[in-house]
Simulated assay, not measured.
Amino acid sequence: MMLTVFNIAWGYDLGDEYAHITTNISPDVDGESVDFFFTGSLAAIVDPASGSVLLEVS
């Protein structure tokens, strides 16, 4: 699944191995979904403007 991310809020709860991320929540972005996930579920971070892979998790 690919997400479009304009901003993030992140943190750890007690006992979490991975940080949780909430996207597009502050400030609110009209027409974009708010998503919640853990960093342990990331496969890659890609710059949509250039297509450059900024991070790839193996």
Rank of each mutant, 00 (worst) to 15 (best):
A44S: 13
E56V: 04
F36K: 09
D28Q: 07
I25Y: 05
G40S: 13
I45V: 15
L55S: 08
V53Y: 00
T23C: 03
V57E: 15
L55W: 02
F36M: 12
I25S: 13
V57T: 12
E17K: 13
S50W: 02
S50Q: 08
A9E: 12
V46Q: 05
S50F: 02
N24S: 06
P27F: 07
S50L: 06
T22S: 09
F36Q: 11
N7V: 05
G11F: 01
A49V: 08
D28R: 04
V46E: 07
L55A: 14
S50K: 05
F37W: 03
T4N: 10
T4C: 08
D28Y: 04
A44C: 04
V34R: 12
F36Y: 15
I8A: 11
A44D: 06
W10S: 15
T23W: 00
F6P: 00
M2T: 12
P48F: 04
G15R: 06
E17T: 15
V57A: 11
A44R: 11
G40N: 13
F6V: 09
D30P: 14
I21W: 01
D30C: 02
I45D: 09
T23V: 04
V5N: 06
T23M: 02
D28V: 10
I21A: 02
S58Q: 13
F6S: 14
F36S: 12
D35E: 13
T4P: 01
S52T: 10
S41Q: 14
L3M: 10
L54F: 01
W10Q: 14
H20G: 05
G31D: 13
Y18S: 15
D35K: 02
E17M: 12
G51D: 01
F38M: 11
G51R: 03
L3W: 03
D16H: 04
G40V: 05
D30V: 09
V29H: 02
V29S: 08
P48E: 14
T23F: 00
L55M: 13
V46G: 05
A49H: 01
V46T: 14
L14G: 11
S41A: 14
I8P: 01
